[in-house]
């Protein structure tokens, strides 16, 4: 099927937990590395760590995506020393926005959306939630919403890019021997 959307893994709980841990570890690593590198522009952040949450969503379900996302935000903030700073809360609410979108998409399984569409909608929800959180919790002025189209344009690009990377990663993931053999 195009987009690798179908196919939750049927694996024992322990192996499932291990997979979540591996995906979360990879997400935290990419999260920290990306924070250390200069970004390509003010409106654009690749958000490559979200690829691992998407893999978890598509193969382990919404709970897997939630576990990977929350562990990435918490452990990434601890590693960067930004826990409970405004940046942490923006990241947290962005993650919640993306997870809410994934929960919504899970309720309409016959939507016809593939990896790229799911990634795009999650990225847009992530950014919209961040801007709304910045407005309501920090800045307090609705003027910040004027910047939303520029940020959403950046998210549009990163959503498509991450969708393509997720597709490539799933091609390797689905062939991995750890998923093909019994423990």
């Amino acid at each position: 099927m195009s987009g690798h959307v179908s196919g939750y893994l049927s694996i024992p709980p322990l192996r499932r937990d291990l997979l979540i841990a591996y995906l979360a570890a990879a997400a935290v690593t990419v999260h920290v590395l990306e924070a250390a590198l200069p970004g390509p522009g003010p409106w654009f952040k690749p958000g490559l760590a979200n690829v691992f949450a998407l893999v978890a969503f598509l193969r382990l379900g919404w709970r897997g995506a939630m576990a990977v996302t929350l562990m990435r935000i918490l452990a990434g903030s601890l590693a960067l020393g930004t826990l409970f700073t405004p940046g942490f809360f923006l990241s947290f609410f962005g993650g919640c926005g993306a997870l809410a979108m994934l929960a919504l998409l899970r309720m309409i399984p016959s939507s016809g959306l593939g990896v790229v569409g799911i990634s795009l909608l999650a990225a847009l929800a992530h950014m919209a939630a961040q801007i709304v959180a910045a407005w309501l919790l920090i800045i307090g002025h609705a003027g910040i919403l004027a910047a939303l189209p520029w940020f959403l344009a950046g998210s549009w690009i990163s959503g498509v890019l991450n969708g393509l990377l997720t597709y490539l990663l799933l091609e390797h993931f689905d062939r991995h021997h750890a998923l093909l053999t019994e423990p």
Binding site: G3, G112, L113, L120, L121, W156, V160
Partner: peptide, 24 residues
């Protein structure tokens, strides 16, 4: 890769969202 990875619905959503962002 894009054509292989995306469904027709994906491309529709991409177009609609891009138009919405550009117009806003």
């Amino acid at each position: 890769l894009f054509l292989r990875a995306s469904t027709p619905t994906d491309r529709f959503v991409l177009g609609i969202s891009a138009a919405g962002i550009l117009s806003s």
